[in-house]
Design a protein around this nucleic acid. Sequence first.
DNA 1: TTAAATTAGTTAGCCTAACTAACTATATAC
DNA 2: GTATATAGTTAGTTAGGCTAACTAATTTAA
Lengths: 139, 139
Amino acid sequence: MTIEQDFFNQYRLMYRPFIKQLNIQLEPYQLYSSQWAVLRFLNDKGPHSFVEIANFMTIEKPSVTKLVHKLIELGYVETTTGKDKREKLVHLSPYGEELVQKIQLQLKSFFEQALAGVPKQDIDIATQVLARICMNINQ
Amino acid sequence: MTIEQDFFNQYRLMYRPFIKQLNIQLEPYQLYSSQWAVLRFLNDKGPHSFVEIANFMTIEKPSVTKLVHKLIELGYVETTTGKDKREKLVHLSPYGEELVQKIQLQLKSFFEQALAGVPKQDIDIATQVLARICMNINQ
DNA sequence: TTAAATTAGTTAGCCTAACTAACTATATAC
DNA sequence: GTATATAGTTAGTTAGGCTAACTAATTTAA
């Protein structure tokens, strides 16, 4: 067992329990983790088109259609026409903006608990490792 | 954006591209990443029952049933009766053992490429961070 | 200038990888 | 000896992706 294999084993092993807990946190807001990822992206990076959301999340366009339409239905986001008649810009609704702040506050303590006992410096290193892998994998 | 939130964002962002690439690596063996996770567990930790596999992978029993039955169908694993008539122990077949060695060799270079440019020390730290989170989340 | 190619988003239908509820068969506890 | 617990299975559901094929709008090029 090399240290690389060990890392990826551990990476995968963490996924299910993490997503499960995250979904429990999000349940009061009728959100799943994938929908939350979209809200967070719009909050952090501002309004973006469907294609831009797809590129950022490295998922396909039809998957974005489903996610965003659900968020529209919930009243958390709205769309406006983009730079031409084809493009639609997705942005948080006023209600959505409030909600994101509220959820982020709640998740803050969940994340802190999950990382309890881990030095800040190690969290930073781990984040950089994950970012580097993303870069390496996506060419 | 706290460093904890940043870490988990990055964690989630990596998942899809990683699993996608891993599945491409496994495709010649008619395996998906979840089935590979079972083979690797049996290889690393020896024969185990369905319940033990479920506990280790933190998935439910019916999910294990499906995974293992597929692996039996492929001829990669076999079952023997366990310590009583209810329990079945799952173990790699001779063919399965060979295959695991072969796949591990192939994945070794995939993993090394994915971690290219990351110091060994940082990989270790990141692995420990992931392990600690697993522990914290699963109580 | 109009025909071909490209781009943004949608629809329909599929798949993986999980889940819960309810079941059978066996084993254990009271 | 009956009630309870445990191992595994079956049936049906779900989240969260996917591809193929479509419409409408835009750009390229002949």
